[in-house]
């Protein structure tokens, strides 16, 4: 029973990782950039939802929507100001810029809200229903359900809609896509907005289950989600989902059965093994369809 419980916990955090990993994966697919600032978008989202709810006294649903919009806008601004001027320069410059953006977001938030962690009071009703001698909280179920719904919606968006088709085309070959009359700039901005919006949802779910907000919370969360994206095959949507869930379960099991302090080391160990054995991950097979 404990084992199943750990697995369920793992799936809960894994669903959050998967949402974040999707953002990494889509952005990587479309501009070939590891967006280091993506983890900090989660941090921004956490602060935003906290601010909207405690300072502006918004109801939870309005705060959530406002957070998603806020993060999407921040994502677009970052893309326009920091990444767009560098689209044709060396990859290493782009990577360093992304690190710079990440540091900038962290430190600006730290300057505004100080480094002390803030407490977030969850709006999901506490309690849950019990199976055996353990109880499964509503937070766990809601997190898993929302993540699953979003993933289905995203898959439909990418495979069925016009903008989804444009995203796939740009990630395949952006010059050709441009010749076919696709507005590459808008598509890239949309991808950033979508990824940041997903990160905002992940942020809301994350603060509901872990209730603590700090300026540096995003970097570790972002790195773990990145490991998930690489594990599943960066650039692939089902890969990011599977990777997120696997990483979540692996982390939960390590914490439960080995040592909670070594969990990070185990995750990075997984990353290193994946990169060495199969750098393309589970689904990212070379030139396969990527978004």
């Amino acid at each position: 029973m404990t084992f199943l419980y750990q697995i369920l916990n793992g799936i809960q955090i894994g669903a959050i990782y998967a949402l974040v990993a999707l953002g990494y994966s889509m952005v990587y697919g479309i501009v070939k950039l590891i967006n280091f600032a993506h983890g900090d978008i989660i941090m921004l989202g956490s602060y935003a939802v906290w601010y909207f709810m405690t300072r502006l006294n918004m109801p939870w649903w309005l705060a959530t929507i406002a957070t998603i919009i806020f993060c999407s806008i921040v994502g677009i601004i970052i893309e326009k100001l920091a990444y767009k001027p560098l689209r044709n320069s060396a990859r290493i410059s782009l990577l360093i810029t992304a690190i710079g953006v990440s540091l900038f977001l962290q430190n600006t938030v730290q300057l505004i809200f100080t480094a002390n962690p803030k407490m977030f009071v969850t709006f999901i009703p506490s309690g849950g229903f019990s199976i055996g001698n353990r109880s499964i909280s509503y937070t766990t179920l809601i997190t898993i359900a929302i993540s699953a719904a979003i993933m289905v919606a995203l898959t439909l968006l990418v495979s069925k809609t016009k903008i989804g088709k444009a995203m796939r085309a740009v990630s395949e070959d952006n010059r050709t896509a441009q010749l076919m009359g696709i507005n590459v700039d808008n598509t890239i901005s949309f991808t950033f907005a979508l990824g940041s919006g997903l990160a905002a949802v992940a942020a809301v779910l994350y603060v509901c289950s872990y209730s603590q907000i700090a300026p540096t919370m995003g970097s570790m969360l972002g790195l773990k989600a990145f490991v998930a994206a690489v594990l599943g095959g960066i650039g692939s949507i089902p890969g990011a989902m599977l990777g997120g869930l696997l990483i979540g379960v692996a982390e939960s099991l390590t914490k439960g059965y080995i040592s909670s302090q070594l969990a990070d080391a185990v995750l990075f160990g997984i990353l290193i093994i994946v990169l060495l054995v199969k750098p393309t991950g589970f689904f990212g097979r070379g030139d396969r369809e990527k978004v």
Partner: peptide
């Protein structure tokens, strides 16, 4: 030896991973 088989972004990430692992091991 293992890390330099990779290039660019992946090399950056794998060395970041090794750096964190070293830190966690020292801590433990």
């Amino acid at each position: 030896l293992p890390a330099l088989r990779l290039k660019g972004d992946y090399l950056a990430i794998i060395t970041l991973g090794f750096g964190e692992i070293i830190r966690v091991i020292i801590l433990n």
